[in-house]
Amino acid sequence: MAEPIMHIRNVVKSFTRGGEEITVLRNLNLEVAEGEFLGIMGPSGSGKTTLLNLIAGLDKPNRGEVWIGGRCVSTMTESQLAAWRTRNIGFIFQFYHLLPVLTAYENVELPLLLLPISSQKRRDQVLNALDLVGLSDRMYHRPGQLSGGQQQRVGIARAIVTDPTLIVADEPTGDLDARSAVEILNLMGELQKGLNKTILLVTHDPRAAERTQRIVHLEKGQLLESEEMQAAGLMAPSDSFQAKAQG
């Protein structure tokens, strides 16, 4: 396995709500290699989004460390994190979360405005990203004028435009019909293979998970590899063909 570009060590995350403490992540460990396409599955409420938030520096663990590209994310200040995130994390959301007042082009440009680059370079990067997701002909459309699948492609273009270390996708196909979902997954596969991007994909959808190189399951606050899941007899029936495909 190549040098890990990200590792998470003994992370504990709990929330207090109504005076009651809920521990979502318990001593969680994870290593991801550069260029790896990792699927993260797990029941609703198991803490997948919470994990992504910790990785992207949007929240802090109670204990443990998150290292990405040689830097410890969990100890950076908020403004350090903001600058770091622009260059290192590309986030893809289930509900796209594009700014409705901006065109596709402007949405993709948004993170680049925070970087000290020339407007020519910025333009090139935006056009390139839109080209990669196949939306060059829609760049002056606003989100309201685009289909769900097209909006998600804009979301992907926005995530890759800064050439981040890590792309993090939280159920990117969760809101799409089957065909659009397939297109989005194809696109992500191409990015990973063609551009050697490291991608973390959170999904409920076994067909989505199928595209990844490795699947981990979040159960009771810990991550289990598929084999471990099987051994523990926890594998859900729908997950089994993925195991077969790999085995």
């Binding site: 403004s79 995130r85 700014l99 948004l110 925070l114």
Partner: peptide, 14 residues
């Protein structure tokens, strides 16, 4: 709120 959150995710400072 969602838009503000997204801007923060993209690296916009508070």
């Amino acid at each position: 709120r969602g838009e503000m959150a997204v801007m923060k995710v993209l690296g916009y400072r508070p």
